[in-house]
């Protein structure tokens, strides 16, 4: 029936939109480079004795950076509809809260229940 007609009308517009929304191969390579550097830093931090006292915050920051880069560029949240970002970051926040509360409740608070 009108299948091809519909395609004709909507497809070009849609594809044009899709193309401008996706990063190029060069951008991907840049991101990969940064990810590699961050990972090298992580491992470096782990092996440098002087940094042991700030190990946890440093590692958390570095891995958060990697996490963000993969989500934003490889999973193209940065370019996609913001709904997808919501679909990811809302559960992620919840997951983080669960992680923090469980470690608190079964760890710290179990030994220091309060006044």
């Amino acid at each position: 029936m009108s299948e091809s007609a519909v395609e004709h009308v909507t497809a070009p517009a849609h594809h044009a939109a899709a193309e401008s929304h996706h990063p190029t191969a060069v951008q991907y390579l840049v991101v990969a480079g940064i990810l590699t550097v961050l990972t090298v830093c992580e491992i470096g931090v782990y092996y440098i004795p002087a940094l042991q006292s700030v190990l946890v915050p440093l590692l958390l920051i570095l891995s958060a950076g990697k996490f963000y880069l993969v989500a934003a560029y490889y999973m193209h949240l940065h370019f996609d509809s913001r709904i997808f970002s919501g679909l990811f970051f809302f559960p992620l926040t919840l997951a983080a809260l669960i992680l923090i509360s469980l470690t608190l409740l079964l760890g710290f608070l179990a030994h220091h229940p309060g006044p």
């Binding site: 679909l87 990811f88 997951a95 983080a96 992680l99």
Partner: peptide, 14 residues
């Protein structure tokens, strides 16, 4: 993926 995030959070917390 959102649902899986919570799944892994529970495993990691444990």
């Amino acid at each position: 993926i959102g649902s899986e995030t919570v799944f892994f959070a529970c495993l990691i917390s444990t």
